[in-house]
Nucleic acid binder design. Structure first.
Length: 374
RNA sequence: GGAAGGAUUCCCGAGUGGCUAAAGGGAGCAGACUGUAAAUCUGCCGGCUCCGCCUUCGAUGGUUCGAAUCCAUCUCCUUCCA
Protein backbone atom coordinates (compact mmCIF):
# COMPACT_ATOMS: atom_id res chain seq x y z
CA UNK A 1 0.00 0.00 0.00
CA UNK A 2 2.96 2.29 0.65
CA UNK A 3 5.52 2.85 -2.04
CA UNK A 4 8.13 5.44 -2.87
CA UNK A 5 9.36 6.08 -6.38
CA UNK A 6 12.21 8.31 -7.33
CA UNK A 7 10.99 10.00 -10.49
CA UNK A 8 14.07 11.91 -11.44
CA UNK A 9 17.44 12.99 -10.16
CA UNK A 10 18.67 16.42 -11.18
CA UNK A 11 21.83 16.16 -13.25
CA UNK A 12 22.95 19.57 -12.11
CA UNK A 13 22.53 19.16 -8.34
CA UNK A 14 21.85 15.53 -7.52
CA UNK A 15 18.58 16.51 -5.84
CA UNK A 16 15.60 14.34 -6.61
CA UNK A 17 11.86 14.33 -7.07
CA UNK A 18 9.68 11.40 -6.14
CA UNK A 19 6.23 10.11 -5.42
CA UNK A 20 5.11 8.71 -2.11
CA UNK A 21 2.07 6.50 -2.43
CA UNK A 22 -0.20 6.34 0.62
CA UNK A 23 -3.71 5.03 1.29
CA UNK A 24 -4.98 8.60 1.04
CA UNK A 25 -3.23 9.60 -2.11
CA UNK A 26 0.09 10.41 -3.68
CA UNK A 27 2.52 12.95 -2.31
CA UNK A 28 5.00 14.55 -4.69
CA UNK A 29 8.36 15.13 -3.07
CA UNK A 30 10.11 17.32 -2.06
CA UNK A 31 7.11 18.34 -0.03
CA UNK A 32 6.29 20.76 2.72
CA UNK A 33 3.68 19.51 5.20
CA UNK A 34 1.66 22.14 7.07
CA UNK A 35 1.31 21.42 10.77
CA UNK A 36 -2.14 20.93 12.23
CA UNK A 37 -1.34 19.87 15.76
CA UNK A 38 -4.90 19.90 17.06
CA UNK A 39 -6.49 18.36 13.99
CA UNK A 40 -6.54 21.75 12.34
CA UNK A 41 -3.97 23.86 10.59
CA UNK A 42 -4.57 26.90 12.75
CA UNK A 43 -7.01 29.36 11.16
CA UNK A 44 -7.49 27.33 7.96
CA UNK A 45 -10.25 25.04 6.73
CA UNK A 46 -9.43 21.99 4.57
CA UNK A 47 -10.76 23.93 1.60
CA UNK A 48 -8.11 26.60 2.19
CA UNK A 49 -5.45 23.88 2.27
CA UNK A 50 -6.74 22.52 -1.01
CA UNK A 51 -6.52 25.99 -2.52
CA UNK A 52 -2.82 26.24 -1.75
CA UNK A 53 -2.16 22.67 -2.93
CA UNK A 54 -1.27 21.15 0.41
CA UNK A 55 -0.89 17.44 -0.26
CA UNK A 56 -0.27 16.09 3.24
CA UNK A 57 -0.54 17.55 6.71
CA UNK A 58 0.79 16.70 10.12
CA UNK A 59 -1.08 16.29 13.38
CA UNK A 60 -0.11 15.41 16.92
CA UNK A 61 -0.64 12.29 18.99
CA UNK A 62 -0.11 13.88 22.38
CA UNK A 63 -2.47 16.80 21.81
CA UNK A 64 -5.26 14.69 20.37
CA UNK A 65 -4.83 12.10 23.10
CA UNK A 66 -5.35 14.80 25.73
CA UNK A 67 -8.18 16.45 23.86
CA UNK A 68 -10.59 15.35 22.52
CA UNK A 69 -9.15 11.86 23.17
CA UNK A 70 -8.11 9.31 20.55
CA UNK A 71 -11.10 7.10 21.39
CA UNK A 72 -13.41 9.89 20.40
CA UNK A 73 -11.52 10.45 17.16
CA UNK A 74 -11.76 6.74 16.45
CA UNK A 75 -15.48 6.83 17.18
CA UNK A 76 -15.79 9.70 14.70
CA UNK A 77 -14.39 7.39 12.05
CA UNK A 78 -10.74 8.31 12.33
CA UNK A 79 -8.81 11.54 12.06
CA UNK A 80 -9.35 12.01 8.32
CA UNK A 81 -13.08 11.84 8.70
CA UNK A 82 -13.15 13.74 11.98
CA UNK A 83 -11.42 16.78 10.49
CA UNK A 84 -12.68 16.24 6.95
CA UNK A 85 -9.26 15.97 5.38
CA UNK A 86 -9.06 13.20 2.83
CA UNK A 87 -5.45 13.46 1.86
CA UNK A 88 -2.56 11.87 3.77
CA UNK A 89 -1.90 12.65 7.42
CA UNK A 90 1.31 12.14 9.33
CA UNK A 91 1.10 12.09 13.11
CA UNK A 92 3.95 13.01 15.34
CA UNK A 93 4.34 10.55 18.17
CA UNK A 94 4.57 12.86 21.15
CA UNK A 95 8.33 12.51 20.95
CA UNK A 96 8.77 16.20 20.38
CA UNK A 97 6.75 16.91 23.52
CA UNK A 98 9.37 14.93 25.44
CA UNK A 99 11.59 17.83 24.41
CA UNK A 100 9.30 20.85 24.34
CA UNK A 101 7.51 20.06 27.59
CA UNK A 102 10.78 19.36 29.36
CA UNK A 103 9.67 21.26 32.45
CA UNK A 104 6.56 19.12 32.76
CA UNK A 105 7.81 15.60 32.25
CA UNK A 106 9.95 12.82 33.65
CA UNK A 107 11.73 10.27 31.43
CA UNK A 108 12.67 6.70 32.29
CA UNK A 109 13.80 3.92 29.98
CA UNK A 110 10.29 2.57 30.03
CA UNK A 111 8.46 5.78 29.12
CA UNK A 112 7.64 9.39 29.89
CA UNK A 113 5.32 10.91 32.48
CA UNK A 114 3.82 14.18 31.31
CA UNK A 115 1.84 16.76 33.18
CA UNK A 116 -0.96 17.81 30.89
CA UNK A 117 -0.51 21.38 29.68
CA UNK A 118 -4.27 21.66 29.82
CA UNK A 119 -5.07 20.75 33.40
CA UNK A 120 -1.85 19.50 34.98
CA UNK A 121 -3.05 15.90 35.23
CA UNK A 122 -0.40 13.18 34.94
CA UNK A 123 -0.17 10.97 31.84
CA UNK A 124 2.17 8.15 31.03
CA UNK A 125 3.46 7.71 27.49
CA UNK A 126 5.36 4.68 26.23
CA UNK A 127 6.28 3.64 22.68
CA UNK A 128 3.42 1.14 22.82
CA UNK A 129 0.97 3.76 24.00
CA UNK A 130 2.03 6.20 21.29
CA UNK A 131 1.51 3.62 18.54
CA UNK A 132 -1.78 2.52 20.07
CA UNK A 133 -3.02 6.11 19.95
CA UNK A 134 -1.74 6.72 16.43
CA UNK A 135 -3.46 3.55 15.26
CA UNK A 136 -6.67 4.80 16.81
CA UNK A 137 -6.25 8.13 15.04
CA UNK A 138 -5.68 6.30 11.79
CA UNK A 139 -2.94 8.49 10.37
CA UNK A 140 -1.17 7.26 7.25
CA UNK A 141 2.31 7.82 8.59
CA UNK A 142 2.99 7.23 12.26
CA UNK A 143 6.15 8.48 13.88
CA UNK A 144 8.21 6.36 16.20
CA UNK A 145 8.23 7.57 19.79
CA UNK A 146 11.66 9.12 20.28
CA UNK A 147 13.65 11.25 22.67
CA UNK A 148 14.68 14.59 21.25
CA UNK A 149 17.47 16.48 23.04
CA UNK A 150 18.56 20.11 23.25
CA UNK A 151 20.90 21.33 20.53
CA UNK A 152 23.72 21.72 23.03
CA UNK A 153 23.35 18.41 24.88
CA UNK A 154 26.60 16.79 25.99
CA UNK A 155 27.77 13.54 24.45
CA UNK A 156 26.66 11.37 27.32
CA UNK A 157 23.13 12.77 27.21
CA UNK A 158 22.99 12.41 23.44
CA UNK A 159 24.28 8.85 23.64
CA UNK A 160 21.70 7.90 26.22
CA UNK A 161 18.84 9.54 24.30
CA UNK A 162 19.93 7.76 21.14
CA UNK A 163 20.03 4.35 22.79
CA UNK A 164 16.70 4.98 24.42
CA UNK A 165 15.24 6.06 21.08
CA UNK A 166 16.51 2.84 19.55
CA UNK A 167 15.02 0.64 22.20
CA UNK A 168 11.76 2.53 21.95
CA UNK A 169 11.83 2.11 18.18
CA UNK A 170 12.03 -1.63 18.54
CA UNK A 171 9.09 -1.58 20.92
CA UNK A 172 7.07 0.58 18.49
CA UNK A 173 7.48 -1.99 15.75
CA UNK A 174 6.81 -4.93 18.03
CA UNK A 175 3.60 -3.34 19.19
CA UNK A 176 2.37 -2.22 15.78
CA UNK A 177 -0.64 -4.09 14.49
CA UNK A 178 0.96 -6.07 11.69
CA UNK A 179 -2.29 -6.61 9.88
CA UNK A 180 -2.90 -2.88 9.54
CA UNK A 181 -1.44 -2.23 6.12
CA UNK A 182 -2.83 1.24 5.85
CA UNK A 183 -0.41 2.69 8.38
CA UNK A 184 3.34 2.83 8.36
CA UNK A 185 5.96 3.84 10.94
CA UNK A 186 8.82 6.21 10.20
CA UNK A 187 11.81 5.55 12.45
CA UNK A 188 13.82 8.59 13.55
CA UNK A 189 17.53 9.36 13.38
CA UNK A 190 18.80 11.08 16.53
CA UNK A 191 22.35 11.64 17.81
CA UNK A 192 22.27 15.35 18.53
CA UNK A 193 25.20 17.23 16.92
CA UNK A 194 27.64 14.31 17.13
CA UNK A 195 28.58 12.99 13.71
CA UNK A 196 29.44 9.50 14.88
CA UNK A 197 26.18 9.23 16.80
CA UNK A 198 24.22 10.47 13.79
CA UNK A 199 25.80 7.87 11.53
CA UNK A 200 25.31 5.13 14.07
CA UNK A 201 21.70 6.16 14.53
CA UNK A 202 21.00 6.05 10.81
CA UNK A 203 22.58 2.65 10.50
CA UNK A 204 20.56 1.28 13.39
CA UNK A 205 17.18 2.59 12.25
CA UNK A 206 17.42 1.56 8.61
CA UNK A 207 16.56 -2.11 9.22
CA UNK A 208 13.22 -0.91 10.58
CA UNK A 209 12.41 1.58 7.83
CA UNK A 210 9.86 0.19 5.39
CA UNK A 211 9.03 3.19 3.27
CA UNK A 212 10.56 6.30 4.75
CA UNK A 213 12.41 7.53 7.78
CA UNK A 214 13.06 10.78 9.60
CA UNK A 215 15.89 12.91 10.79
CA UNK A 216 14.91 14.39 14.12
CA UNK A 217 16.56 16.44 16.80
CA UNK A 218 17.72 19.19 14.45
CA UNK A 219 16.77 22.86 14.44
CA UNK A 220 16.67 22.70 18.21
CA UNK A 221 18.84 25.71 19.00
CA UNK A 222 22.02 24.88 17.08
CA UNK A 223 23.32 27.18 14.31
CA UNK A 224 22.03 26.40 10.84
CA UNK A 225 25.52 25.53 9.65
CA UNK A 226 25.70 22.78 12.27
CA UNK A 227 22.42 21.34 11.05
CA UNK A 228 23.67 21.40 7.46
CA UNK A 229 26.82 19.65 8.59
CA UNK A 230 24.78 16.87 10.14
CA UNK A 231 22.78 16.49 6.93
CA UNK A 232 26.00 16.38 4.89
CA UNK A 233 27.36 13.60 7.07
CA UNK A 234 24.23 11.49 6.67
CA UNK A 235 23.58 12.08 2.97
CA UNK A 236 25.95 9.48 1.48
CA UNK A 237 24.42 6.78 3.65
CA UNK A 238 20.76 7.12 2.77
CA UNK A 239 19.07 4.31 0.86
CA UNK A 240 17.73 5.82 -2.35
CA UNK A 241 14.37 4.11 -2.40
CA UNK A 242 12.87 5.74 0.67
CA UNK A 243 11.78 9.31 1.43
CA UNK A 244 13.79 11.21 4.00
CA UNK A 245 11.88 13.46 6.31
CA UNK A 246 13.63 16.29 8.13
CA UNK A 247 11.44 16.97 11.13
CA UNK A 248 10.49 20.45 12.24
CA UNK A 249 12.22 22.34 9.43
CA UNK A 250 11.61 24.99 8.28
CA UNK A 251 12.38 28.31 7.04
CA UNK A 252 12.58 28.91 3.29
CA UNK A 253 16.38 28.82 3.28
CA UNK A 254 16.53 25.64 5.39
CA UNK A 255 14.14 23.92 3.00
CA UNK A 256 16.20 24.81 -0.04
CA UNK A 257 19.40 23.78 1.72
CA UNK A 258 17.75 20.59 2.92
CA UNK A 259 16.61 19.56 -0.54
CA UNK A 260 20.12 20.18 -1.81
CA UNK A 261 21.20 17.73 0.90
CA UNK A 262 18.81 15.01 -0.15
CA UNK A 263 15.77 15.72 2.02
CA UNK A 264 12.33 14.89 0.62
CA UNK A 265 9.88 15.91 3.32
CA UNK A 266 9.60 18.85 5.71
CA UNK A 267 7.16 20.11 8.29
CA UNK A 268 7.28 23.19 10.45
CA UNK A 269 5.08 25.39 12.60
CA UNK A 270 7.08 28.43 11.55
CA UNK A 271 4.95 29.60 8.60
CA UNK A 272 1.70 29.36 10.53
CA UNK A 273 3.01 30.67 13.83
CA UNK A 274 4.84 33.71 12.53
CA UNK A 275 1.84 34.45 10.32
CA UNK A 276 -0.36 34.76 13.38
CA UNK A 277 2.31 37.00 14.86
CA UNK A 278 2.35 39.31 11.85
CA UNK A 279 5.29 38.10 9.79
CA UNK A 280 5.21 37.10 6.13
CA UNK A 281 7.78 35.18 4.10
CA UNK A 282 9.11 36.85 0.99
CA UNK A 283 11.81 35.73 -1.40
CA UNK A 284 14.17 38.27 0.14
CA UNK A 285 13.48 37.69 3.82
CA UNK A 286 10.83 38.29 6.43
CA UNK A 287 8.32 41.11 6.29
CA UNK A 288 6.88 42.12 9.65
CA UNK A 289 3.64 43.71 8.59
CA UNK A 290 3.20 45.32 12.03
CA UNK A 291 6.01 47.75 11.25
CA UNK A 292 4.82 51.36 11.04
CA UNK A 293 6.31 51.76 7.57
CA UNK A 294 3.47 49.66 6.14
CA UNK A 295 0.74 51.84 7.61
CA UNK A 296 -0.03 53.44 4.26
CA UNK A 297 1.47 50.80 2.01
CA UNK A 298 -1.32 49.72 -0.31
CA UNK A 299 0.73 47.18 -2.22
CA UNK A 300 0.40 43.43 -1.58
CA UNK A 301 2.83 41.49 0.62
CA UNK A 302 4.50 40.22 -2.56
CA UNK A 303 3.68 41.82 -5.89
CA UNK A 304 4.19 38.68 -7.96
CA UNK A 305 2.59 36.19 -5.55
CA UNK A 306 -0.60 34.57 -6.75
CA UNK A 307 -1.99 33.54 -3.35
CA UNK A 308 -5.43 34.70 -2.25
CA UNK A 309 -3.89 37.11 0.25
CA UNK A 310 -1.60 38.86 -2.21
CA UNK A 311 -4.15 38.93 -5.02
CA UNK A 312 -6.71 40.74 -2.90
CA UNK A 313 -5.29 42.62 0.06
CA UNK A 314 -2.73 45.31 0.83
CA UNK A 315 -0.02 45.47 3.47
CA UNK A 316 -1.86 48.40 5.03
CA UNK A 317 -5.06 46.40 5.36
CA UNK A 318 -3.36 43.30 6.74
CA UNK A 319 -1.43 45.51 9.16
CA UNK A 320 -4.70 47.01 10.31
CA UNK A 321 -6.16 43.53 10.86
CA UNK A 322 -3.12 42.30 12.79
CA UNK A 323 -2.90 45.48 14.89
CA UNK A 324 -6.59 45.16 15.69
CA UNK A 325 -6.23 41.54 16.67
CA UNK A 326 -8.61 40.55 13.93
CA UNK A 327 -8.62 36.85 13.15
CA UNK A 328 -8.58 37.44 9.39
CA UNK A 329 -5.10 38.99 9.57
CA UNK A 330 -3.54 35.80 10.88
CA UNK A 331 -5.49 33.72 8.43
CA UNK A 332 -4.42 35.72 5.38
CA UNK A 333 -0.77 35.62 6.39
CA UNK A 334 -1.06 31.90 7.15
CA UNK A 335 -2.38 31.36 3.64
CA UNK A 336 0.45 33.40 2.19
CA UNK A 337 3.22 31.72 4.19
CA UNK A 338 2.02 28.18 3.51
CA UNK A 339 1.47 29.00 -0.13
CA UNK A 340 4.98 30.44 -0.21
CA UNK A 341 6.57 27.19 1.01
CA UNK A 342 4.36 24.88 -1.01
CA UNK A 343 4.95 26.93 -4.14
CA UNK A 344 8.65 26.94 -3.35
CA UNK A 345 8.75 23.13 -3.29
CA UNK A 346 6.69 23.06 -6.48
CA UNK A 347 9.17 25.34 -8.20
CA UNK A 348 12.00 23.21 -6.94
CA UNK A 349 10.38 20.04 -8.26
CA UNK A 350 10.10 21.70 -11.65
CA UNK A 351 13.71 22.81 -11.51
CA UNK A 352 14.85 19.30 -10.61
CA UNK A 353 12.73 17.87 -13.38
CA UNK A 354 14.48 20.20 -15.81
CA UNK A 355 17.97 19.52 -14.41
CA UNK A 356 18.44 23.09 -13.27
CA UNK A 357 18.09 22.95 -9.51
CA UNK A 358 21.73 23.99 -9.15
CA UNK A 359 20.94 27.31 -10.83
CA UNK A 360 17.70 27.64 -8.88
CA UNK A 361 19.58 27.09 -5.65
CA UNK A 362 22.20 29.75 -6.43
CA UNK A 363 19.62 32.30 -7.35
CA UNK A 364 17.43 31.62 -4.36
CA UNK A 365 20.27 31.73 -1.87
CA UNK A 366 21.69 34.94 -3.34
CA UNK A 367 18.33 36.69 -2.97
CA UNK A 368 17.24 35.28 0.34
CA UNK A 369 18.40 36.40 3.78
CA UNK A 370 16.57 35.11 6.84
CA UNK A 371 17.83 38.03 8.91
CA UNK A 372 16.93 40.69 6.40
CA UNK A 373 13.98 42.82 7.47
CA UNK A 374 11.89 43.73 4.49
C1' G B 1 -26.51 80.67 44.64
C1' G B 2 -24.79 76.63 48.16
C1' A B 3 -22.33 71.68 49.31
C1' A B 4 -19.05 67.74 48.17
C1' G B 5 -15.54 65.37 45.13
C1' G B 6 -11.93 65.69 41.32
C1' A B 7 -7.90 67.52 37.70
C1' U B 8 -1.19 62.64 37.38
C1' U B 9 3.49 61.51 31.85
C1' C B 10 -0.62 59.67 24.42
C1' C B 11 -5.31 57.26 27.06
C1' C B 12 -7.19 54.84 31.59
C1' G B 13 -5.39 54.83 36.39
C1' A B 14 -2.11 54.10 41.28
C1' G B 15 0.45 57.37 44.26
C1' U B 16 -0.87 61.96 49.98
C1' G B 17 6.34 65.19 52.25
C1' G B 18 12.27 62.41 50.54
C1' C B 19 13.11 55.25 48.47
C1' U B 20 9.03 59.11 42.23
C1' A B 21 10.62 60.38 35.66
C1' A B 22 6.33 58.69 39.02
C1' A B 23 2.91 51.39 40.15
C1' G B 24 -0.36 48.80 36.85
C1' G B 25 -3.16 48.46 32.36
C1' G B 26 -3.97 50.10 27.30
C1' A B 27 -2.19 52.28 22.95
C1' G B 28 2.31 53.00 20.28
C1' C B 29 7.43 51.39 18.63
C1' A B 30 10.77 47.37 17.84
C1' G B 31 12.28 42.26 18.33
C1' A B 32 11.81 36.82 18.86
C1' C B 33 9.40 32.55 16.93
C1' U B 34 11.80 25.95 13.02
C1' G B 35 8.24 17.51 14.67
C1' U B 36 2.77 24.36 18.25
C1' A B 37 1.54 24.65 26.43
C1' A B 38 2.16 30.29 21.10
C1' A B 39 -3.86 34.78 17.57
C1' U B 40 2.22 33.90 22.16
C1' C B 41 6.42 35.99 24.41
C1' U B 42 10.37 39.87 25.15
C1' G B 43 12.32 44.85 25.17
C1' C B 44 11.46 50.20 24.78
C1' C B 45 7.90 53.69 25.93
C1' G B 46 9.30 62.78 28.94
C1' G B 47 13.96 65.14 26.85
C1' C B 48 19.23 65.53 26.43
C1' U B 49 25.77 66.55 24.99
C1' C B 50 22.37 59.90 28.63
C1' C B 51 27.03 56.44 34.42
C1' G B 52 24.90 62.85 34.85
C1' C B 53 21.65 66.79 33.83
C1' C B 54 17.03 69.22 32.39
C1' U B 55 11.58 69.46 32.12
C1' U B 56 6.86 67.04 34.02
C1' C B 57 1.73 65.43 38.04
C1' G B 58 -4.68 71.87 35.89
C1' A B 59 -2.48 77.39 36.77
C1' U B 60 -0.05 80.85 39.89
C1' G B 61 2.01 81.96 44.47
C1' G B 62 3.56 80.08 49.24
C1' U B 63 5.38 76.55 53.50
C1' U B 64 9.77 73.23 53.71
C1' C B 65 16.59 71.35 53.54
C1' G B 66 13.08 68.75 50.14
C1' A B 67 6.34 68.83 47.29
C1' A B 68 2.55 65.17 42.37
C1' U B 69 1.80 64.87 47.65
C1' C B 70 0.84 70.55 52.69
C1' C B 71 -1.43 75.90 52.36
C1' A B 72 -3.80 80.09 49.46
C1' U B 73 -6.05 81.95 45.20
C1' C B 74 -7.67 80.99 40.37
C1' U B 75 -9.46 77.84 36.09
C1' C B 76 -12.11 73.73 34.46
C1' C B 77 -14.97 69.03 35.33
C1' U B 78 -18.50 65.68 38.11
C1' U B 79 -22.37 64.88 41.62
C1' C B 80 -25.94 66.70 45.14
C1' C B 81 -29.10 70.81 47.27
C1' A B 82 -31.80 75.38 45.87
Amino acid sequence: MFKYEVIKTCKQSGARIGKLYTPHGIVDTPVFMPVGTNATVKSLAPRDLDDINASIILSNTYHLYLRPGHDLVKKAGGLHKFMNWNKPILTDSGGFQVFSLSKMRKITDDGVTFSSYIDGSKHYFTPERSIEIQEALGSDIMMAFDECTEGNADFKTARKALDRTMSWLDRCYKYKNKTAENQIIFPIVQGNMYKDLRLESLERILPYAECGFSIGGLSVGEPKEVMYEMLDILKPHYPSGQPRYLMGVGSPDCIVEGIMRGIDMFDCVLPTRIARNGTAFTKYGNLNVRNAKYKEDFTPIEEDCDCYCCRNFSRAYIRHLIMSGEILGGKLLTLHNLHFLIKLTENIRNAINEDRFGDFYKEFISNYDWNKKI
